[in-house]
Write a protein that binds this DNA or RNA. Structure first.
Lengths: 83, 83
DNA sequence: CAAATATATCGACTTTTCCCGATATACCAA
DNA sequence: TTGGTATATCGGGAAAAGTCGATATATTTG
């Protein structure tokens, strides 16, 4: 999912017809692509958010998730310096 | 354990009296510091080795493990470029 | 407000991981 | 070769993570 969110236009072309990608990709799109149930994907996304790898933005009835690039940079640096 | 192996002299001073750190630190030393059983530590180390993070060298009845710094560098780069 | 849609949360079940004791293997010393 | 020490492997029980269906919450539309 994290890799998918790197290129929303390529991995979630369906969303383009309804909304842009300013705030990220909505749960339903990710769920469809993942092939897991709605509840599983929702929980998974919330875990990634709590871990800081993605951010969420509620817009109407949709919740959009997008990557927090800083977290990946930080993780990369952490491995390089502390591990 | 991976962090411990960064500075063997500091984290495993006992070993200095018996051997150097050229080949790393032996299982017993790591086990004592970890506070886990011998079997658990042995298995853990073999997993880390299979993953490429450490290398082992058998010397007599001892097996010494040391870090493979390249693996950490590679992981850091992987996160930065692919994730 | 009622129905429809999107997402979140809950409880249970399954799968995986963690960690142990027991035992096997390898090596050394006498 | 026998006994002692160090490490590896095996089998199982406990803990954690993954996944689901059912249900709750939030939002939009009529």
């Amino acid at each position: 999912m994290l890799e998918w969110l790197k290129e929303p236009e390529i991995n979630f072309p369906d969303q383009l017809q309804h909304a842009g990608f300013e705030h990220g990709v909505c749960v339903g799109q990710i769920q469809a692509k993942a092939g897991l149930t709605q509840s599983t994907v929702s929980e998974y996304l919330s875990i990634l958010q709590r871990a800081g790898f993605i951010e969420s933005k509620r817009v109407g009835q949709w919740t959009y998730y997008k990557r927090n690039e800083g977290a990946f940079e930080a993780l990369s640096n952490l491995i390089q310096s502390n591990l």
